[in-house]
Design a protein around this nucleic acid. Sequence first.
DNA 1: ACATACAAACAGAATGGTCTGTATGTAATA
DNA 2: TATTACATACAGACCATTCTGTTTGTATGT
Lengths: 199, 199
Amino acid sequence: MAVESENKRPTQEERTDAMRARLLEATLDLIAEEGWAQTSTQKICKRAGVSRGAQTHHFPTKNSLLIAAVREIVARYQTELDAVSDRNLAGAKGLEDLFDFLWNACFEGNLLNCWMDVMVAARTDAALLPAVRETDSAAIDAMRSLGRRCADTTSKQHRASDLTELTVYLLRGMVVQKGVHPSQGDRTRLFSIWKQLAA
Amino acid sequence: MAVESENKRPTQEERTDAMRARLLEATLDLIAEEGWAQTSTQKICKRAGVSRGAQTHHFPTKNSLLIAAVREIVARYQTELDAVSDRNLAGAKGLEDLFDFLWNACFEGNLLNCWMDVMVAARTDAALLPAVRETDSAAIDAMRSLGRRCADTTSKQHRASDLTELTVYLLRGMVVQKGVHPSQGDRTRLFSIWKQLAA
DNA sequence: ACATACAAACAGAATGGTCTGTATGTAATA
DNA sequence: TATTACATACAGACCATTCTGTTTGTATGT
């Protein structure tokens, strides 16, 4: 019964990590549901069940919280990418499988919705721009390299990575479109045309 | 000297038109420069050199002003499209020329920046969504029909309009990308790859 | 006369940042 | 080991700013 600190009192570091995680989770949910512009620190606190004092303690300014959220979005996306990367290294299936994965990653969750909100906001938010630029570059690089790895011959690697980047832009355009026209039917058809062209 | 109403006093209708035009112009400028989320009615009034009373007289609510701005954006874009339509009807040059026009229309002005801001905002703004949906559908239809008209044989018209829609989404993704990474070099290269594929 | 164009003040809500207060963890010391 | 000193975690009030919408008043066109 004299358990040291296993069940009763989390250490300070654990508390901090948990609190930051709760705040970030609430932030991502809010961006997905109400959009970047409507995401205020007060709403985040309410949703996370956290006092404003706690929030300002861990994230002194709104920007520090939002930038942490930006990095979290890309980190999660990167995790998904890594998964497919491992899968593809096992049984290399070619570019088309990669494109299908990117398609699914775009449209099943809401991470990409968040990311488009963030990118559009970054254009006119000088405090946000550097963080977004940096994380986006890293993400694009990762996807290009994934495309390169899907090419069978070394001579086609360069083209494969270019096609992958084109796919990313195309899908981003479609994600925005989905925000306005949710029905996916026509986009599915168009994307298969694109896959045919790329093959 | 007894000039009726030529130089001295504009008629009421002229005043109204002029005032609405000034407000819309200021609105579009603000969206382009500071983004949709930062565009408030107060800033619009200040920029247009108009009192808040005048603004609320012509646009009783913020939404009525913003929706008018949405329609204005698409109307201007449509004007550009019509120009190229006439040009193409004269000497039909094929899809590639159309794609080049779309590329230029995307990146030389800032209309498309505004439009991406609007589309992203519409996803989470119920009052905005119907107007955006409607105007965007019309624009997509217009561009598809333009693509159809660029096909030489009737059998290829369907495919031409599909390729045009794909191009639109691709370019929209690139416009957002430009907001974060302004340098255009790599995108120019990628777009020429896309044009090759589509040909 | 009557409606319209415009000006300006005002109200109520929301936001982000700061500040004070309190409880708890942590580490040095005696 | 017991006590003391300090840092950290969190709560909630407060404030200045900004925003949208309303209302009242005045001048001008029809």
